[in-house]
Design a protein around this nucleic acid. Sequence first.
DNA 1: CCGATTCGTAACTAACTAAGTTACATGAAA
DNA 2: TTTCATGTAACTTAGTTAGTTACGAATCGG
Lengths: 149, 149
Amino acid sequence: MKRNSRLSSTLHILVHMADAPERALTSEQLAGFIHTNPVVVRRTIAGLREAGIVTSSRGHGGGWQLGRAPDKISLAEISGALGETLLPFSTEPESPGCLVEQAVIAVLDDFRLEAERLLTERLSHITLADLTADFRRRYDLIGVSSHAV
Amino acid sequence: MKRNSRLSSTLHILVHMADAPERALTSEQLAGFIHTNPVVVRRTIAGLREAGIVTSSRGHGGGWQLGRAPDKISLAEISGALGETLLPFSTEPESPGCLVEQAVIAVLDDFRLEAERLLTERLSHITLADLTADFRRRYDLIGVSSHAV
DNA sequence: CCGATTCGTAACTAACTAAGTTACATGAAA
DNA sequence: TTTCATGTAACTTAGTTAGTTACGAATCGG
């Protein structure tokens, strides 16, 4: 895993969970898919559990499963549950009395608000089911193991 | 300066430059506005010079000035010249043969492309002149030094 | 020409963030 | 009651960015 790849790593994991809905996958198995550590996986998707996107169970036969059908899980929800901001730039005031800064922040905050609305709207139209369908299409086309490397 | 505040810091600097178009401002003066180091300023806005947004001159009376009128400088250009990406998430392949990863990356890259198009379009409608006007409006309203801290 | 000024840039340090790791408590199933 | 799996805290490591120091190159005034 590298910097800011949490969204794509999480989607990868979720597609695998969608692809094996009948059984729970352990964080060790999930970690294997994205070549990382089970603890990192648990930490990363802990927020998804709180959002009801996934469920986890302990002990024998425990692990992770989707909390609802893939077509009811949008990328907007997933991104939100990860707690990442779509827009990275900061607008923290650093010279509270400066009117130039106030003007800059006002314009930038307006833009951020509008941008977040736009992006969330787009992401809310893409579901985990779309991703899974895309994966299956590729699988049928090439006919090769989903983890050939 | 803190993390990812480069866009807002740069805008702050540029508004000051737009506000004193007749004379060059040194990187020392510009650094004072955003409470940082002259070298950091030079490094940060070096990209703007290459994009023609600002010009710099050395020696006595040297410093920085806008490269063209504020209403001809859009936030899209500035953001681009800073070399920052608007969308932070990574889609670097990490398991090249994995079809799940390929599906995830395909969807995410599509989204990123569309999102960048949308955001750039919005930013291209905001100019440095808009920011300067907003600053002047605040200044006239409150009637206070632009750097009262 | 000389000295002051200012940018350009390399090299280093410090601070911060996120991933990776270890360790162990908690809970569930066989 | 043993084994397996999550939950989470604490620590380590790696990578990024801001900040700093230093100095060469260019420009201007005298």
